[in-house]
């Protein structure tokens, strides 16, 4: 059988769409299941406000679901838009776009489930604070979605930029690398951000008076947790927008693909680790509000150290792109 370019592009678009939705379905489902489990426990604890808990559960689940809705949108575009191009790069772009969104949705989906579950439990414990808990949950989950939004940005830029004029040989690896960097890079940060937001909701339920510092430090911790996902986005952007000279050798394409993989995989651990740090900081601020300044400082220093492995990955990825 002889395949022409157009067939390959369709094949890649179908595979990309399938992977986007398949991978993208993992995270949100886990997160929503966790939320529902916590909501069950909450209703059993305080059956009097089961209506409020149900509402809060549904809102939380809807936000957790948005990561997989992004994946659905990308999958739909891949399946129903006809892309015509005369370059094999386009096939790689389709596959990469799907992979990027699929991986990117995992972490945020799981992560957004945590604050929603904690908010349900918190309402059962402290019904007077339900308004504040819902606000905190919404803020926390929305920030949790940020890594998946980064993956979505990369995925759309891949889809709607014309790569066909570039040299096939290194560009195919560059676009695949961009997808891996941005997609895999979002996994850890999404999960880590969820851990932070969870302990924020728990903290407010435990000590309503500390709501303001808890929300502030939660936001700060989540923002720093996302740093490695942003490095992934950065490497993705460099790989997409830098034009590489054409080559016949297999080495330069592999360097570019390696840069993407290095940054993507390297970003997973720091994201989760920084999430642990910030989770604990927020948890203890709720118990000891007087020590907020010291706890925040310690959190930032600890996160900076936990992030150093992510910076090593960034340095190696940049070396692979610019030196190799």
């Amino acid at each position: 059988m002889d395949f022409d370019i157009q067939t390959w592009i369709s094949v890649a678009a179908f595979m990309g769409g399938a992977l986007a939705m398949g991978l993208g379905a993992i995270g949100a489902a886990i997160g929503e299941g966790y939320t529902a489990a916590q909501a069950n426990a909450a209703v059993s604890r305080n059956p009097g406000i089961s209506g409020d808990i149900l509402k809060s559960m549904l809102v939380g689940q809807a936000i957790a679901e948005s990561a997989s809705i992004f994946a659905l949108v990308v999958a739909m575009i891949l399946l129903f838009t006809s892309f015509t191009s005369q370059s094999y790069v386009t096939a790689c772009v389709m596959l990469s776009s799907g992979l990027c969104m699929g991986f990117g949705a995992i972490g945020s989906g799981v992560g957004s489930g945590f604050p929603a579950g904690a908010a349900c439990m918190g309402m059962a414990r402290q019904p007077a604070m339900s308004g504040r808990l819902t606000t905190n949950m919404l803020i926390g989950s929305a920030v949790c979605q940020t890594p998946s939004i980064f993956a979505l940005v990369t995925s759309f830029i891949l889809l709607f930029t014309d790569f066909s004029a570039r040299a096939v040989s290194p560009t195919w690896a560059a676009v695949l690398g961009a997808g891996f960097a941005s997609g895999l890079g979002a996994v850890g940060s999404g999960l880590g951000g969820g851990l932070v937001a969870e302990s924020g909701c728990k903290g407010i339920a435990r000590q309503p008076l500390s709501a303001t510092p808890v929300t502030n430090v939660m936001l700060l911790g989540q923002a720093v947790t996302q740093t490695t996902a942003i490095y992934g986005l950065l490497i993705g952007f460099i790989l997409m927008f830098k034009s590489f000279p054409a080559t016949d050798s297999i080495a330069p394409p592999m360097a570019l693909l390696g840069a993407g993989l290095c940054m993507g995989i390297g970003a997973i651990g720091p994201g989760i680790g920084e999430g642990f740090t910030a989770r604990s900081a927020v948890k203890w601020i709720a118990r000891n509000e007087g020590a907020t300044a010291d706890l925040t400082r310690l959190m930032l220093v600890g996160q900076a150290v936990a992030e150093s492995t992510g910076i090593y990955s960034l340095v190696i990825a940049l070396i692979l792109i610019f030196v190799a």
């Binding site: 992004f70 940020t146 939004i149 979505l152 940005v153 740093t227 942003i230 992030e307 910076i311």
Partner: peptide, 24 residues
């Protein structure tokens, strides 16, 4: 590099979110 990366992370965070929202 860690210090310089702070600039990158703070600006890309804002840019990625707003750009992502606009694209969606």
């Amino acid at each position: 590099i860690g210090e310089l990366a702070k600039v990158v992370s703070i600006s890309f965070r804002l840019f990625g979110n707003i750009m992502g929202g606009a694209i969606i």
